[in-house]
């Protein structure tokens, strides 16, 4: 669970027909918290930027949904 993933807990009713998903997650990437990008922010090298998907580490947001569904009750067995 990286720093950019937050969780919430859906209501589970005793009458749910299927196994409940008790924990759900959502991602809060850094661009939500940066209104206007300051000049001269530190940068990755071009090779690293190509891997990271952005030139600026402060904007790096690795979105990885699969990590959230493993091993949770009723998580469709992913």
């Amino acid at each position: 669970m990286n720093a950019q993933t937050r969780t919430w807990f859906p209501y589970v009713s005793p009458f749910d027909p299927c196994p409940p998903i008790r924990v759900k997650t959502y991602v809060v990437p850094p661009n939500l918290f940066i209104t206007f990008q300051r000049p001269d922010l530190p940068q990755y090298s071009p090779a690293e930027a190509l891997r990271a998907g952005t030139l600026w580490p402060s904007l790096y947001g690795p979105y990885n949904p699969q990590q959230d569904y493993t091993g949770r009750e009723g998580s469709h067995g992913i």
Partner: peptide, 16 residues
């Protein structure tokens, strides 16, 4: 790959 990395950095800078 080098060319691709530089092109990507240029895209980022252009948008910035």
């Amino acid at each position: 790959e080098q060319l691709q990395a530089i092109d990507f950095a240029l895209v980022e800078l252009n948008l910035y």
